[in-house]
């Protein structure tokens, strides 16, 4: 056998693996600990902290808020992002190049800057209600995912297919819904899910826009940690993690993750 793997390479691979997986194991372990503080390895075994999430009204409320925000923000973002991606793909030649990059700005500028400027403009400047500001903030935050992922699908779409539909008597607006959309469905679902996860896990933008009475789950998590530092934090984290992993698994099974690397 000539194909011996160098022991150092094995060691390095194992270390990397532990580094990636370790924290997840620790947090799952911690969330099961039968103690009133965060500890690892867990002492005793209980699901009490998971039950706790739903007993603390602040968590119940913020879970609802976070999911509503993720759905609403992503929906708004899609309504802007899909037409934008369509225009960018269809009129690639005619439109100036920088226009495509404008839609990626929310990723490029530090999120904390985005959050702060949104607070100054939307929440304080325009004086909008907290929930409205949050919705707008999240829509903006996830817009790059919508435009980029849907755009990747549209760039692979042959627009003469749309022209063919029009030539056969289908008005252009109808061709968009009956011909274009069904063929970029994968991109739209993928974009929606990525945006959804980004919104659900966001702290930096939300922290500037939440206020009295309205908070999101990650923000509530931070607040809870400051006050209690009990394994509820771990259990919420695990919950968020599983929702994210679950959603990604669905994407992987249905569409493949290759679009992420494009």
């Amino acid at each position: 056998m000539n194909t011996r793997t160098h022991p150092l390479l094995v060691a390095f691979a194992v270390l990397t693996f532990l580094f990636l997986v370790g924290p997840l194991v620790i947090i799952i372990g911690t969330s099961l600990s039968d103690t009133a503080f965060l500890t690892f390895p867990p002492e005793g075994l209980t699901l009490h902290w998971y039950q706790n999430i739903f007993e603390i009204s602040a968590f119940r409320r913020t879970i609802m808020t976070s999911f509503a925000l993720a759905v609403g923000g992503t929906a708004i973002s899609m309504m802007i992002g899909v037409p934008a991606a369509y225009a960018l793909a269809r009129y690639r030649v005619e439109l100036p190049k920088f226009l495509g990059n404008v839609y990626v700005l929310p990723i490029l500028i530090p999120e904390i800057v985005l959050g702060f400027s949104l607070m100054k403009s939307v929440a304080i400047g325009a004086g909008l209600p907290i929930m409205t500001s949050l919705l707008l903030g999240h829509a903006l935050l996830v817009l790059p995912y919508c435009v980029r992922v849907v755009g990747a699908s549209l760039n692979a779409f042959d627009f003469s297919i749309e022209d063919a539909a029009v030539s056969l008597g289908c008005p252009r607006w109808k061709a968009f819904f009956t011909i274009v959309l069904p063929n970029v469905k994968a991109g739209i679902i993928a974009g929606f899910i990525l945006a959804f996860i980004t919104s659900l896990n966001d702290v930096s933008v939300s922290i500037f826009l939440t206020g009295p009475g309205v908070s999101t789950l990650p923000i509530q998590l931070l607040a809870h940690m400051e006050q209690f530092f009990d394994p509820t934090i771990a259990s919420v984290s695990v919950l968020l993690m599983f929702v994210t992993v679950g959603v990604m698994a669905i994407v992987e099974r249905t569409l493949g993750l290759t679009f992420l690397t494009k």
Partner: peptide, 9 residues
């Protein structure tokens, strides 16, 4: 069309 432009779905 040159690319046939059939509806893939």
């Amino acid at each position: 069309f040159q690319t046939y432009a059939l509806f893939p779905h």
